Computed example of a mutant assay.
Amino acid sequence: MLEVILLEDEPVLLKELGRFLDSLGYAPLCLSSVAAFTQMFDARRHRLAVIDIGLPDGSGLALIRRLRQTGEALGIVVYSARSTAYDRIAGLEAGADHYLGKGCDLDELAATLAALERRLALQPLPALDAAPAQPAPWQLELGPAMLHVAGAPLAARVALSPQDSAVLHCLMLRSGATVSRRDIVQALGADYDDYDQRRLDSQMHRLRQRVEDATGCLLPVRTVRGSGFVFYEPAQVR
């Protein structure tokens, strides 16, 4: 996965954007200050950045200028409540590749990042100092339906409804591969041609939220636009 460094000082929005980037298949590093960005930024790993302008300890524009002055080639998207023509021009002149106002649809942010990926020909980097392989932390128990999360900071397991169990069973059996919407709908026992796709999107949203609220972990399911979903972590079904 491509690693994205996200700089936003509003806690609720930072969490929302982090979840959104995770759902797109990025690995977000969520930070709330210029100092944290300066400390944590690693040009070897972070290929894309989403940066707010008004921050508690400095200016996002000044940060972008410093990044460009040092020759950093990462793709930069400004995501700010300051969205007048003057603000946008200032952001682009500072070195941002794109400037989005916070009122925009998140799908526009997704499309902007995807366009930057293509233009910069970005590829995921291999993990640095990789740890030895560990047993799959995500385990689906079918009877009773239960999702186990090893090492979760909160509860280690989540009770599942029959519908959620069917969806995860379909995805986790083929972890690492894209599972089509048709296959998932059929696993739910529904007719794909008559099924309202918004129901599946709503179910996935509720399932992600439930797992995060219960365990403190993000459910590793990425939406593959126009295709389906992928469970991108090692998984076991028992």
Score class of each variant (00 low, 15 high):
residue 201 D to Y: 12
residue 166 A to Q: 09
residue 176 G to C: 07
residue 189 G to H: 11
residue 146 M to F: 00
residue 163 Q to W: 00
residue 145 A to E: 07
residue 213 D to F: 04
residue 167 V to S: 01
residue 211 V to L: 15
residue 142 L to M: 14
residue 186 Q to C: 06
residue 146 M to I: 02
residue 189 G to D: 09
residue 203 Q to M: 10
residue 145 A to D: 13
residue 177 A to F: 11
residue 149 V to D: 07
residue 167 V to T: 00
residue 140 L to A: 04
residue 180 S to R: 01
residue 207 L to I: 15
residue 174 R to C: 09
residue 151 G to K: 01
residue 204 M to N: 15
residue 170 C to G: 10
residue 167 V to I: 04
residue 145 A to N: 12
residue 169 H to R: 08
residue 185 V to K: 04
residue 183 D to T: 08
residue 174 R to F: 08
residue 138 W to K: 03
residue 156 A to G: 09
residue 205 H to N: 10
residue 186 Q to W: 11
residue 198 R to N: 12
residue 150 A to G: 08
residue 162 P to N: 04
residue 139 Q to C: 04
residue 153 P to T: 01
residue 159 A to C: 02
residue 142 L to Y: 10
residue 178 T to L: 04
residue 152 A to E: 11
residue 184 I to F: 03
residue 167 V to N: 00
residue 190 A to F: 13
residue 150 A to M: 12
residue 149 V to M: 10
residue 171 L to W: 02
residue 191 D to Y: 10
residue 141 E to T: 14
residue 162 P to A: 03
residue 192 Y to I: 08
residue 157 R to K: 10
residue 159 A to R: 05
residue 138 W to H: 05
residue 213 D to M: 12
residue 194 D to A: 12
residue 179 V to P: 02
residue 146 M to E: 11
residue 183 D to L: 05
residue 172 M to D: 01
residue 191 D to M: 13
residue 202 S to M: 14
residue 163 Q to Y: 00
residue 182 R to A: 10
residue 201 D to P: 12
residue 141 E to W: 09
residue 193 D to C: 07
residue 149 V to H: 08
residue 186 Q to K: 02
residue 166 A to C: 13
residue 178 T to E: 07
residue 194 D to T: 15
residue 172 M to T: 03
residue 168 L to K: 03
residue 191 D to W: 07
residue 195 Y to W: 05
residue 208 R to H: 10
residue 147 L to I: 05
residue 203 Q to E: 11
residue 206 R to K: 06
residue 173 L to Y: 05
residue 177 A to H: 14
residue 199 R to S: 11
residue 204 M to E: 13
residue 152 A to N: 10
residue 149 V to I: 14
residue 213 D to R: 15
residue 195 Y to S: 01
residue 162 P to C: 03
residue 162 P to F: 00
residue 213 D to Y: 06
residue 160 L to V: 03
residue 164 D to K: 01
residue 169 H to S: 00
residue 197 Q to K: 14
residue 197 Q to R: 12
residue 188 L to M: 08
residue 182 R to M: 05
residue 207 L to T: 13
residue 202 S to F: 13
residue 180 S to L: 02
residue 187 A to Y: 05
residue 213 D to S: 15
residue 167 V to H: 02
residue 142 L to Q: 14
residue 161 S to L: 03
residue 209 Q to A: 14
residue 183 D to E: 13
residue 199 R to F: 00
residue 140 L to E: 01
residue 154 L to E: 06
residue 140 L to M: 04
residue 160 L to T: 01
residue 155 A to P: 00
residue 210 R to S: 12
residue 210 R to L: 15
residue 183 D to K: 01
residue 145 A to T: 07
residue 185 V to E: 08
residue 159 A to Y: 02
residue 202 S to A: 11
residue 174 R to Y: 13
residue 184 I to Y: 00
residue 147 L to S: 05
residue 193 D to G: 06
residue 146 M to D: 11
residue 207 L to Y: 15
residue 202 S to C: 15
residue 140 L to W: 02
residue 202 S to E: 14
residue 148 H to I: 09
residue 166 A to P: 10
residue 174 R to L: 11
residue 182 R to G: 05
residue 201 D to M: 07
residue 162 P to Y: 01
residue 146 M to H: 07
residue 157 R to L: 00
residue 194 D to I: 12
residue 148 H to Q: 12
residue 188 L to Y: 02
residue 158 V to N: 02
residue 204 M to P: 15
residue 174 R to I: 06
residue 196 D to R: 09
residue 161 S to M: 02
residue 175 S to C: 13
residue 196 D to S: 07
residue 207 L to S: 14
residue 183 D to Q: 04
residue 162 P to E: 06
residue 175 S to H: 14
residue 170 C to R: 04
residue 199 R to P: 08
